[in-house]
Amino acid sequence: MEQLLQQVASGLANGAIYACLALALVMIFVSTDHINFAQGELSMFSAYLVWQLIQWGLNFWLALAIVAFVSFLIGVMVERVILRPLHSAPVLSIVVVFIGLLAIFHSLAGAIWGHTIKDFPSPFPNIAFAGSGYIGPHQIGMILVTIALLVALFSFFRFTPLGLAMRAAAQNPASARLAGIRVDWMLALGWGLAAAIGAVAGSLVAPVVYLEPNMMASILLYGFAGALVGGIASPGGAVVGGFIVGVLENLIAYLGNLLEKTTGVYIIGNGEKLTVALIIVITVLTLKPSGLFGHVTVKRV
C-alpha cells in the first residue's frame, strides 16, 4: 500500500512536467493548429541556459525568470521569422520545419555545452516534512509550480485584455481582425508563451533526469500523450491529462512489478514506458481525438 502511494505521488510529480509540456503544446496548437515537434528540444535548450546562468552565479529563480523571458523572445522569433512565411504551406512542409528546428536546437545544445551529463540543482530546500516518505521536496515543488503556472495562465487568458485577444485570435481569426486585434502578433505571442512555459518544464525536470541533449525526447512523448488525453485544444484538459498520464505511467509499471513478484510472469515494467506512451497516443488519437475534456472543434479548412 505504501509503495502504491509512493508511486502515485511520484507519478503526480512526473505528471506535473508532462502537464507543463502539454500546456506548451496546446498553446501552439490552439493558436496555429500546429503540433510542435521541437517543443522538447526548445525546453531542453532553455534548461541549459538556466544551468549556464546558475554556473555564472545567479540564483535559480532569477535565472529561470531571465531564461523564460529569453525563451519567450526565441519563441516569438521562431514564429515570426520561420513559420510565418510558410503559413499556407502544406502540412508536410510545416512538419519538416519543426523537425529542422528540433535538429538545430538539439545540436546547438550539444555543440555549446557538450554531451556529458550535467547535475542540475533543485531549487527547493531539502527538508523533511509530514509525508516526506512518499514524496520528495523537489517533486512537491514541481507540482506546486505547475499549478501556480496554470492559475497564472488561466487568469491571464480570462481576465486580461491581451489574454482575451489571444483567445479571440485563436478561436476566430477573421472575427478577431474585425475587432482590431493584430492576429499575427497574437499567434507569435502564443508561441512565445509556449516557449516560456517549456523553459519552466525543462528547468524543473532537469534535476530529476539530469541535463543532457537527449533528456526531453521521451518526456516530450509523454507531454504529447498528456495533451491528447486532456484534449489538445484545451489548456485545462492538457494539465489534467499530464497528471493522469504521469500517474498512469507509474501505476502500470507498479502493477507490472507486482504481477512479476506474485506470479513470476513479466509483462510490463519500467523498460516499456515509451511503448505505454505510444499506446496511449495511438489509442486516444484513434478513439477519442478530442480528448477527455476537449470538445469537438470545427475543422478549419
Binding site: I35, L220, G271, T275, L278
Partner: peptide, 24 residues
Amino acid sequence: RLEGHYLALATFALAVAVPQFLKY
C-alpha cells in the same frame, strides 16, 4: 482515422518508442 499533424504525431510516437520496443 488520422490526418496531417495527427498522423505525424502518431508516427512520431512510434519512432521514439522503437528502440525500447526492440529491447522488450
